[in-house]
Design a protein around this nucleic acid. Structure first.
Lengths: 253, 253
DNA sequence: CGATGCGTTGAAGAAAATCAAGTGAGGTGG
DNA sequence: CCACCTCACTTGATTTTCTTCAACGCATCG
């Protein structure tokens, strides 16, 4: 996202505790629990969801490798959202206390953290607009294009194809639709050749058309170099994502 | 939200440029425009909205006195949302460059800024859940209870009553409903005695019942005092809100 | 005093939800 | 190794919620 000093990079590397494996369906943290930290996602898929009184579940964000988990609740005593593993994966906990070091010792990293959070906020604004004002068809197209873009940034796509481990019910929970309606909509897109499926693998057959169907623009992060506090520790190479992407092997070790 | 040192407070006071008046319907900043700053809201109501290709408008957040405007777009080159004054009001611009000073000079304020942003993110998560999974009735109840709570924090309620300058069309744009349906839903709540209206003033006639109807919990900010970076400039009094609430007269001067 | 904006209400229509039933793949245990 | 079970997907029929279209009342304001 932006260049970092060598010491900044060391700071980021030191944030996470040792990586932990999670299994599909496992709850990482339930809403209402006391907040005691955040997590880095190293590998796998995780849903951030909220449970409503009538029993419905809304998935508020689908997390992939490289994301930070659970940070929205860091200003609350009790977590607002539940984190559930959608697939097997690896995560690393970051105690809240360690984030403090960023503000005192690595102001540039702290500023970048703020930026990353603002980008998440924009993503949520997009979600509100999509769910509030668009048809199931548009919403699904947007969802797939967005996922494809995010996955490609961390090297998890094969051309126009990618692995999509969500069940149709989970897709519905993310898009504010029922599983039945998700199914009908998917099948319609498939019938028209816009997408294709084989097992869990989904292929965007006509990306330009899907993008035209999708009601929201792709957002590109952008930072004014002058604006940010200077890095610490001298110049170093760029980092591809907010959090180091997919360092699975290293984390396992 | 949290205690600040005297110098921290001075830093916050110095953020905004001189206050500017805005008139109802005035566009403060249109989506797509180059991002050159954020704003503090001193007085009035402002909507943050997004325009969709088919022409629909989704209001993503209704801002009141004490809020920061336009910050989600600070990590983008071009603004994601449009800021429109819903009433006459006063705002103060904050050049992005000045926020930099926070990270270098006032780490505690910077950390609190991050917290405030995370709280906004939780509010958006709540909005996603409400729009995605609840009925018009529940959504409206939640909207009114939430507004009442926020307004009461900055002293803009009179008991269970408050001024609600949004048109029903704007309420619909915020809740993902049509104006017609908002009207029917309002009238139903009114018929049942849950709310009452006189002009722009709305009264929550049965707050407990509305809260029971509302699908989302009230969130209370919470910061671990140990966690935050220490304040600068010695102890000082508490501040009621993230940004100094309703300093209307001072700002006008 | 006639626009114009906002609220209100009725009637008809559409999108999505609900209810129901059946298929098939994969995993497990007998 | 096969029977069975569960989970996910699929499809049809029906119902509900919300939208769309239309018309009208009322207040405000230039």
């Amino acid at each position: 996202m932006a260049s970092l000093g060598a010491r900044d990079i060391a700071t980021i590397r030191g944030l996470g505790e040792t990586a932990v494996a999670v299994r599909r369906h496992e709850t990482i943290r339930r809403e209402g629990q006391l907040v005691d930290g955040v997590w880095l996602m190293l590998h796998g898929w995780v849903a951030s969801s909220m449970l409503l009184p009538a029993g419905q579940r809304q998935i508020v964000k689908v997390h992939i490798a490289g994301d930070m988990l659970g940070t929205p609740s860091m200003a609350l005593e009790r977590a607002a959202d539940t984190l559930t593993a959608l697939t097997d994966g690896w995560i690393a906990r970051v105690p809240l206390a360690r984030l403090r070091a960023l503000f005192d010792d690595a102001p540039r990293v702290a500023a970048l953290l703020l930026m990353a959070v603002q980008l998440e906020r924009v993503a949520l604004m997009d979600a509100v607009a999509a769910i509030g004002k668009t048809s199931a068809r548009e919403r699904l197209a947007n969802f797939l294009v967005d996922l494809h873009q995010r996955l490609s940034q961390v090297g998890l796509t094969q051309g126009a194809s990618f692995d999509m481990p969500l069940t149709q019910e989970q897709i519905g929970d993310a898009l504010g639709l029922t599983a039945v309606h998700v199914n009908r909509t998917i099948r319609a897109l498939e019938r028209e050749g816009l997408i294709a499926r084989r097992g869990q693998t989904i292929t965007l057959g006509d990306l330009p058309m899907l993008e035209r169907l999708s009601p929201l623009p792709r957002r590109t992060p952008w930072f004014d170099p002058d604006w940010l506090p200077a890095g610490i520790g001298g110049p170093a190479s760029d980092d591809g994502a907010a959090v180091e992407p997919a360092p699975t092997r290293a984390a396992r070790a």
